[in-house]
Amino acid sequence: MEFADGKILAEIKDGVGRITFNQPEKRNAMSVTMWAGMGEALDLFEADASVRCVVLTGAGDKAFVSGADISQFDKLRSDADAQREYSRQTAGGRLKLATFPKPVIAEIRGFCMGGGLGIAMSCDIRIAAEGSQFGIPAARLGIAYGFDMVRHLVALVGPAHANMILMTGERFPAEEAQRVGLINKVVPADALTAEIAKLTATLAVNAPLSLYANKRTVQAVLQDRADRDIAAINAAMAACFDSADYQEGRKAFMEKRKPAFQGR
């Protein structure tokens, strides 16, 4: 399946939805239409019960996403008013990723910079190949990032490391990204595909209602207290305990076999 004139590719296989940012000639830099296309693909995956988790990755081996498409800046982000319009146009895709109910994994090769790092931080798990490069070069472009992205960064690495990343604008390797807590794991480049396949296979057989409830609760922990929907969190937890999957989980445990969860 193709979206955004082929710049966003989507496929479903073995319970896993995969979105590929497909602009390798620009190191998969995100255009406005790509944000919309990603949102359309996520809508498709959310509606499909066979999709248990989603992987985001970049085409080729040079970049996950190198950031926003700078070639559009003069036209779409030339000043504060233009930036507000750009934010409005891309808000739908950003919101759909931030609120997507199923697990999302970032499979990172090469450059993961600026807005591309923002996409990765909106995922639940980030696995990177050795040789990947990270950074937020805002200070070298004369721009600033919005509250939500900076909050994600601070939540992952803490204020000290966030200040270093934002103020220097420097690139740093995957090993440093793992050390400060920005990514979960670094693996050899030739092992990344297998590592992602192992992880998605695990998520695809785990209980969907449990994954949904726990993801929602983790997100709520990072929200302001006034924004937390505790009733919805409690309802998601109750749905787990009232589900046929919970009965199946208990039965499978007693029978010493793997459970077959159905998401209900």
Results as ranks from 00 to 15, higher is better:
1 M>V: 07
41 A>F: 08
16 V>G: 04
33 T>A: 15
37 G>Y: 08
26 K>W: 13
3 F>W: 04
31 S>P: 01
30 M>L: 12
18 R>Q: 10
23 Q>N: 13
29 A>C: 05
30 M>Y: 08
27 R>D: 01
32 V>P: 01
36 A>T: 05
37 G>V: 03
3 F>S: 00
32 V>S: 11
7 K>C: 01
3 F>H: 08
7 K>A: 15
20 T>H: 03
13 K>M: 06
39 G>L: 03
4 A>C: 05
18 R>M: 10
19 I>W: 14
11 E>K: 12
2 E>V: 07
14 D>L: 06
13 K>L: 11
22 N>S: 09
24 P>C: 02
23 Q>G: 03
35 W>V: 00
37 G>E: 06
9 L>H: 11
26 K>S: 13
19 I>D: 14
2 E>I: 03
33 T>W: 06
20 T>F: 15
31 S>W: 08
12 I>P: 01
12 I>F: 11
23 Q>W: 14
17 G>A: 13
13 K>Y: 13
16 V>H: 14
36 A>K: 05
30 M>S: 07
6 G>I: 05
9 L>R: 12
12 I>D: 00
29 A>F: 02
33 T>F: 08
26 K>Y: 15
8 I>V: 13
17 G>R: 09
11 E>P: 03
36 A>L: 04
7 K>I: 02
41 A>L: 05
10 A>M: 09
6 G>K: 06
28 N>D: 09
4 A>I: 02
37 G>A: 06
31 S>A: 15
36 A>R: 04
13 K>Q: 15
4 A>V: 02
24 P>M: 04
25 E>T: 05
37 G>W: 03
25 E>N: 12
17 G>T: 10
26 K>N: 14
23 Q>M: 10
24 P>G: 01
33 T>V: 07
40 E>K: 05
30 M>W: 07
30 M>G: 00
17 G>L: 07
38 M>H: 03
16 V>A: 12
9 L>I: 09
